[in-house]
Simulated assay, not measured.
Amino acid sequence: MHVKPDQHGSHAGGHHGHGEHDSGGNTVLGFWIYLMSDCLIFATLFATFGVLAANTAGAPGGREIFDLPYVAIETVILLISSFTFGMAGLHLQAGAKAKVMQWLGITFVFGAVFIVMEIHEFMALIAEGAGPSRSAFLSAYFTLVGTHGLHVTAGLLWLATMIHQVWRFGLDGVVRRRLACLSLFWHFLDLIWICVFTFVYLRGVL
Score class of each variant (00 low, 15 high):
G149C: 10
I80W: 11
A140Q: 07
Y141M: 08
D6N: 11
H187L: 04
L29S: 04
L40R: 12
Q7S: 14
W103E: 00
R178T: 04
L184P: 04
S23V: 15
Q165M: 05
V152Y: 03
Q102P: 00
I33D: 13
W158C: 02
V166S: 02
S81W: 01
L150W: 11
H2N: 01
G86R: 04
V196H: 08
L182G: 03
R63Q: 06
T27F: 08
V109I: 01
R176Q: 13
I126C: 12
S139V: 03
L184Q: 08
L40M: 13
G146F: 12
A127P: 08
A94L: 15
I65E: 01
T153A: 12
T153R: 03
L92A: 04
H18V: 07
L182S: 06
E118M: 10
K4M: 14
A112I: 07
A136Y: 12
E128I: 02
G58N: 05
I192E: 04
R134M: 00
F83G: 07
P132E: 03
D6L: 14
F142S: 12
G86V: 06
L184R: 07
A57L: 09
R134K: 06
S183H: 03
E20Q: 07
A160C: 08
S135H: 04
Y70T: 00
V76P: 15
F114I: 10
G19D: 01
F66E: 06
S135M: 07
